[in-house]
Nucleic acid binder design. Structure first.
Length: 458
RNA sequence: GGAGAGGUGGCCGAGCGGCUGAAGGCGCUCCCCUGCUAAGGGAGUAUGGGUUGAUAGCCCAUCGAGGGUUCGAAUCCCUCCCUCUCCGCCA
């Protein structure tokens, strides 16, 4: 039995064990594992898929896909035909043997079947691998409601909440305000650039913000708090779409373990439902997790180098929802609202922005960003990103639910959003709550998390 | 880290290399019977892929994963992963 003549399911399982096709020589993943755009949709409506991808600035090579698909079809047919022949022949041999007949002629009749099958299988696997790579590299086509555009300049502001405070003094930035409580020198000494050390009440504020966010989402929004690993394997990252295309953005563990530091809690949390068939009645699932996030920020050299806006390590409270496919658009609005609640409770001015097609992340069908006002920069900056991935991640993960109407498994839809990025919230609090004398007040909502203090002791 | 045991369908649990996609039990669904919270009888009940107008059929694959032996592997061989028990270490 040649490589690849094992079934689809075994490949999917292999994948789930972290044995990846990419560079590992292991079996090819199939549908579930490769994940992506629905292969059937790709075959049947490739034009519309191509159109969607064009909005993201990606030109789908329709001719190449169709050629590959034609070969795949022919070879799969051949392989299955040969396998069937082999099965039938083997069965006959078994029966003959049981009846006490001479099996030599039957065995001889099998002839080159084995070799033919091995050859066909080899070819089939090669084509599937090629097809797999091709499809896997395709991002999620944007939803129809996503504004067109190539980059962030085409994003659409949907609404604003509160006008920025009109300071009658020159607002200072968070680095200046934090003073010695933000010890960037120590961080550089310990770890290098893009890390930070927080001290005293600033560290406490950081922790308090985190607690406040989690508590709000658990108590008021009905999320289940989960604690998850910060190191994950390749398969997990493939499920949510960080791999195989964006390995450079991740910190990998160097050594025997083929693991990576999570770039966001989305990765471990969404993968909770990987390879499962959920009960219809259990949907929607809502998880909130607080984790550190690790990003290499490759390609962002020189960008946001001041302060702690863009770090290799930062904390985030993440919201994840697993929902019925017909509910995901409502869920996106809800989830965005849950993130907004934090900003409102903290009374931080923000605006809501719909990302244009060109600005979407790989797996997202639609993304709504929340941007908080930073007085020192005199502009709104991203503090939360809420996305509906529809069935894109679910396909990669084989995350399904039992459809009560058909009795069959269907893919769920997945969503996530920051609720919020803690470090950036810290910046926003510092800058928006400064009083002009270098002091920073504690937002009312955070008082109880700060031991009743009304001012930060910086 | 050392020693041992084990990984089979939603769960439990059989399985001399061939008729086992997989006995049996439990659970679940539907039907029948039953005059009353129970019992009994019958049928059905995995997933992925392909084909197709089709969630109708039909075909292929899957018994932790990968590879090997063989006409044929859940069953034999090799490698890896995981779980459990005991010892050691440890927050």
């Amino acid at each position: 039995m040649g490589a690849g003549s094992r079934g689809f399911r075994s490949r999917v399982r292999g994948l789930q064990r972290g044995l990846l096709p990419i560079g590992s020589g292991a079996g090819l993943p199939d549908r579930g594992g490769t994940g992506m755009i629905d292969p059937r949709r790709l075959r049947l409506e490739i034009r519309s898929v191509a159109e969607g991808l064009r909005l993201r600035g990606i030109e789908l090579d329709v001719g190449r896909f169709e050629a590959l698909e034609a070969r795949r079809k022919r070879l799969q047919d051949e392989v299955e035909r040969l396998r069937r022949r082999r099965r039938v022949a083997s069965k006959q041999i078994g029966e003959a043997k049981a009846a006490g007949n001479d099996i030599a002629p039957l065995v001889g009749a099998v002839g080159d079947l084995g070799d033919d099958l091995a050859d066909a299988t080899r070819e089939f696997d090669a084509v599937r691998h090629e097809l797999d790579e091709f499809v896997k590299a395709l991002p999620n086509p944007p939803d129809d409601s996503v504004p067109p555009g190539a980059d962030e300049t085409a994003n659409i502001e949907l609404r604003r909440w509160q006008e920025p405070a009109d300071f009658n003094f020159e607002p200072r930035d968070h680095v200046s305000l934090a003073s010695t409580s933000l010890d960037l020198e120590a961080a550089v000494k310990i770890s290098g650039s893009r890390f930070s050390v927080l001290r005293g009440s600033l560290a406490r504020l950081h922790r308090g913000l985190t607690q406040f966010m989690i508590d709000t989402h658990v108590r008021e929004h009905g999320y289940e708090e989960v604690y998850v690993p910060y190191l994950v394997d390749r398969h997990t990252l493939l499920g949510t779409g960080q791999l195989p295309k964006f390995e450079d953005d991740l910190f990998a563990i160097d050594g025997e373990r083929d693991q990576f530091l999570i770039p966001t809690a989305e990765v471990p949390v969404t993968n909770l439902v990987r390879d499962s068939i959920l009960d219809f009645a259990d949907l929607p699932l809502r998880y909130v997790a607080h984790t550190p996030c690790f990003r290499s920020e490759a390609g962002n050299y020189g960008k946001d180098t001041h302060g702690i806006f863009r770090q290799h390590q930062f904390e985030k409270v993440e919201l994840v929802q697993i929902v019925h496919p017909r509910k995901s658009w409502d869920a996106l609005d809800e989830l965005t609202g849950h993130a907004e609640t934090i900003l409102r409770k903290l009374e931080l001015p923000y605006r809501v922005v719909a990302l244009c097609a060109g600005d979407l992340g790989f797996a997202a069908a639609k993304t709504i960003d929340l941007e908080v006002w930073l007085p020192a920069e005199r502009r709104y900056r991203e503090i939360s990103s809420c996305s509906n991935f529809v069935d894109f991640q679910a396909r990669r993960m084989l995350a399904r639910y039992r459809n009560p109407e058909t009795g069959r498994p269907d893919y769920v839809h997945t969503l996530n959003g920051s609720g919020l990025a803690v470090g950036r919230t810290l910046i926003a609090v510092l800058e928006n709550y400064q009083d002009g004398n270098g002091a920073v007040h504690v937002p009312d909502a955070l008082r109880s998390y700060m031991g009743g203090s009304t001012r930060l002791d910086l």
